[in-house]
């Protein structure tokens, strides 16, 4: 369960204070797939980074599984991000000098999972997202965009997070691959009982999600 109440984020810009996220409140029940749509500059990415505890809000509350993320200290936030949240980015953000399987194992290494367990889980997840054994040993540069995004999804799932945040997960992919990635996310949300929040401007995708929020100038419409 993700609960956001009265969330505000302001930046100090050249022309005074800019409010990127303005008094937003919403809820996403556990295991649901929510999408946030909006134009460029509407505050989608800022909202996502606040949900992922990558940035601190100016005011407001974010509760994940009953814990208030905004009140956590830096040290706990690191653990929170590692254990409870999985990220999927538009440009995949895989570590270029690690292989697919090593990329998936990395968050588990940070979470002090034993090496054997890391490997077992990584292979399992990569199989699940459809990355064959020979491709698991390839570095990101030798994988297609769709394959890289699959690896990124496997990485996001590695620590069994309660919330997956996806920032334009299909933005860099052709429509067919984008649909496959979306279906994959959707299936995972159901099978792993993971809450997924995806930012997108692809209305065909947004229409298929359980909940859709529309952002305009930092506020929900």
């Amino acid at each position: 369960m993700l609960k956001v109440s009265n969330l505000v984020k302001q930046f100090n810009g050249a022309s005074g204070k800019v409010t990127a996220v303005s008094d937003i409140s919403f809820e996403v029940p556990e295991g649901q797939f929510a999408s946030i749509i909006g134009k460029s500059g509407s505050g989608k990415s800022t909202l996502l980074s606040l949900l992922g505890a990558l940035d601190k809000p100016t005011s407001g509350k974010i509760e994940v599984g009953g814990h208030d993320v905004t009140k956590m200290h830096d040290h706990r936030l690191i653990k929170y991000r590692g254990k409870e949240i999985g990220f999927v980015f538009q440009n995949y953000n895989l570590v270029p000098n690690l292989t697919a399987i090593e990329n998936v194992m990395l968050p588990m290494e940070f979470a002090h999972v034993s090496p054997n367990e890391r490997k077992r889980r990584a292979v399992e997840l990569l199989d699940q997202v459809g990355i064959t054994a020979d491709k698991q040993k390839r570095k990101p540069s030798r994988l297609s965009g769709g394959e890289q995004q699959r690896v990124a999804i496997a990485r996001a799932l590695s620590n069994k997070p309660s919330l997956i945040l996806a920032d334009e997960p299909t933005g860099n992919l052709d429509s067919q691959t984008g649909k496959m990635i979306f279906d994959l996310l959707h299936d995972l949300a159901k099978s792993e009982n993971t809450t997924i929040v995806a930012v997108t401007h692809d209305l065909s995708i947004a229409g298929k999600t359980d909940v859709t929020f529309t952002l305009k100038d930092g506020s929900l419409v």
């Binding site: 992922g52 990558l54 690191i78 991000r81 590692g82 570590v95 968050p107 940070f110």
Partner: peptide, 16 residues
């Protein structure tokens, strides 16, 4: 920077 950001996002501490 981006790589460092990714490490932080997926749960790596500053010290790590």
């Amino acid at each position: 920077r981006r790589e460092i950001g990714v490490y932080k996002a997926i749960g790596a501490s500053n010290i790590r």
